[in-house]
Computed example of a mutant assay.
Amino acid sequence: MARRKKIYEGKAKILYEGPEPGTLVQYFKDDATAFNAEKHDVVDGKGVLNNRLSEYFMTGLNNIGVPTHFLRRINMREQLIKSVEIIPLEIVVRNVAAGSISKRLGLDEGSPLPRPIVEFYFKDDGLGDPMVSEEHILAFGWASQQDLDDIVALALRVNDFMSGIMMGVGIRLVDFKIEVGRIWEGDFMRLVVADEISPDSCRLWDVSTGQKLDKDVFRRDLGNLADAYTEVARRLGVLPRNTASVGKPTLIN
């Protein structure tokens, strides 16, 4: 079999040239990073879980009419996605004060926010992904005003969907990050949710106990990251409920 062409490698994923024009293969690694990769480890099975969980969320969004780049899962670690032009922004939606917003505004972690807050960060690891305003985005041409309006609408729809799904299994969606890409169809352009949606890109707290079930487990040395992600997958039905927490989980097709 011919060696695949690598298009891009990030901290948690690798993109390969896809089997058809306009497609890519997205491979999920077991690497766990925090603090702009200053903290790094390899967590056995993490890529498998994130691949399956991202498939679950992206499929759900596609089914309710929120467009994504996801086409189908190929195997335990890979999925077929549409090739998109990524807008160089990370879009964060916050429902509860946690992380950087608590530090910036002096809010107690866990304080409910008055409404979902959408923030923008410029995608540049070398700069630490700095927070930017709509004025910066428009001035530097990263997106148009119409793009921004559409991005906010997409992000809030994702928030509604994810909040409901998570609350149904006893998990509070504290915040999450998405990326958005442009797909061109002739002269027509549309925006789609891209990258991934997984516990790597969300803060997830157990509703009853406040237990963290996301990457903060790794950031703050709160336990085993694979155990936390396995619990999320189990509650959502991605894993059988009687499955023991293991490094290489058996997933439901």
Rank of each mutant, 00 (worst) to 15 (best):
N51I: 04
R157I: 04
L107E: 10
L222H: 10
H69F: 08
E85K: 03
E119K: 11
A97D: 05
M166F: 12
L173D: 03
P249R: 02
R234P: 08
F57S: 04
M76L: 13
E231L: 12
I151T: 03
V217H: 04
A233D: 00
A226V: 15
V96S: 00
S144T: 15
D221G: 10
G164C: 10
I81L: 04
R234H: 11
K39E: 13
N51W: 00
G22S: 06
T68D: 07
E55P: 03
R234C: 11
V84R: 00
T230H: 10
C202N: 05
G186V: 01
R73P: 02
V93K: 02
P88V: 02
S133V: 12
K103L: 14
Y229E: 02
K6R: 12
G47P: 04
D44Q: 13
V84M: 00
V193L: 04
G18T: 04
I183A: 05
V42Q: 09
S83Q: 12
E85T: 06
E179H: 08
I178F: 02
A244Y: 10
A37T: 15
F122T: 07
A2W: 10
D216Y: 07
L24D: 01
E134N: 09
G186D: 07
S201N: 06
E38L: 14
M189E: 08
T23S: 05
S198F: 02
V169G: 10
E9M: 08
E231S: 11
I171W: 02
L107V: 13
A228Y: 04
N51M: 04
G22D: 01
I81D: 00
L80Y: 06
I151F: 05
I117T: 13
D108E: 15
I165Y: 09
L53G: 00
V132S: 09
N36F: 12
K103M: 14
L49Q: 06
V152I: 15
M189D: 00
V207E: 15
L15A: 07
Y56R: 09
V174Y: 07
K212F: 03
A143W: 04
F188Y: 14
E119P: 07
